[in-house]
Amino acid sequence: MTGKQVDLFLDSLINAPIKDDRALMEFPFFSLQKAPRMKPLVYDDGKIKVEVRPGDKGIATIWDKDVLIYLASIINDRLERGLPVEKTIRFNAHNLLQVTGRGSGKRAYELLLDAMFRLRSTTIVTTIEADEIKERRGFGWIETFRVIERRNKAGKKVMAACEITLNDWMFRAIVKDRRVLTINPAYFNLTMGLERRLYELARKHCGYQDRWMIALPRLIEKCGSVLEPRFFKLQLRRVVEEDALPDYHIALRCDAPEGGMSGTERTEARRWASNERIVVCFWPRQTPERPAEPVSALL
């Protein structure tokens, strides 16, 4: 692939829906922190086991996952247009940065390269099936990646194109299982790792239903957070207060008896309730087709 040929056959996303893999939304595969996470991430609910092991730069982060979402969206778009698909995708680096809401400066390209390194070096071992095949071996999110650089008019080297080969497990999930969901592009605007994870879970479990509730300890497990529960709750309360998740509201509910309590007393009861008594509730935002549901009806 020469510099002059680079732009002739690169995939780009133009007015196509953004797609995510359902399994990647359901289970905690990615680190929620930007600092390198070197501690393995293990999730086991008795039915599905996921173990994620770090590479030299740590476990792939939920921001690195943007690359996988972009690739899944390209593959899905080609399928829906009746075009052939393959595990190796060649794409315009600038387009990826645009679609995922990143800058286009030198630092943005450096971060993209770091993301590819982590996606390649992170090792996943899981029992989740894809195309009726149960994966019991370790694999990386991507098998290989290649970056093509060329000099711009100012004589500086710039990232012109990228080539990434997905792992078999994820490729089968997208192409054969069609295990994808449309997500709101505003997802890429979320700056907190926990916000992104909560949106994924809301989109996967709540969808367009009236509501979805989950106990706080279970939510912590499904987020794969390294935070102690008390610090996780502080971050969660911040997300609740800011109410910035695309498409969904989020609130905390305490199962403690509240009969006869004043509003202030109920608030304090929720604040100091044990983790086992706290339930996190998600419900869709109001749309022209769907009137707003009173929070009191949920909590």
Rank of each mutant, 00 (worst) to 15 (best):
K156Q: 10
T165K: 15
A202P: 04
G140Y: 12
I250M: 05
G260K: 02
A215N: 08
R137Y: 13
N189A: 10
F91K: 03
D21W: 04
A93D: 04
R22G: 00
G101L: 04
E276Y: 06
K34I: 06
E241F: 07
C254H: 12
I278K: 10
A108W: 00
S274K: 10
D77E: 07
W212S: 10
L32M: 09
R237D: 14
Q5T: 06
V85E: 06
G193F: 01
T267I: 10
D11R: 12
A130P: 03
C281K: 06
D44T: 08
A244H: 10
G207K: 13
N189D: 06
H205P: 00
V147A: 15
V279I: 13
K153E: 15
Y187A: 01
G3W: 15
A273C: 11
I142R: 05
L181R: 08
R218T: 13
I183A: 04
A93K: 01
K39P: 05
P17V: 01
L68C: 01
M116I: 05
K222V: 03
I59M: 02
K233H: 08
E26N: 10
Y248A: 06
R277Q: 14
R22I: 07
S274M: 08
K34F: 05
I214G: 02
S104E: 14
P36G: 06
F139W: 13
V175F: 09
E86W: 09
L112D: 00
R102W: 08
K4T: 12
A297G: 15
L201W: 00
P246Y: 03
G103R: 02
R102K: 15
D7Q: 08
M38D: 14
A269R: 11
G263Q: 10
G138T: 08
L252Y: 07
G224T: 03
Y208A: 11
L234I: 11
L83C: 00
L113G: 07
W212H: 12
T88W: 06
R90T: 12
A108H: 02
S12H: 11
V52L: 02
N95K: 08
G259Y: 12
D11H: 15
L97S: 01
D243W: 08
T2A: 05
P217K: 05
G193W: 00
R197V: 03
F9S: 14
L201G: 00
T2L: 12
K106E: 13
D56T: 09
A16K: 09
V6H: 11
A108K: 00
P84I: 02
R197Y: 03
L198Q: 01
D131I: 05
P54C: 04
R178Y: 10
K153L: 14
E265I: 02
N189C: 01
D64R: 00
E143S: 14
K4I: 09
R270N: 14
K49S: 15
N275Q: 07
K156A: 08
A273I: 09
K57P: 02
E242Q: 10
E129I: 04
R218G: 05
C254D: 10
L227D: 07
I278Y: 08
D11G: 03
N152S: 09
R150F: 11
E265R: 13
C254G: 12
M38P: 15
V99W: 01
L96T: 06
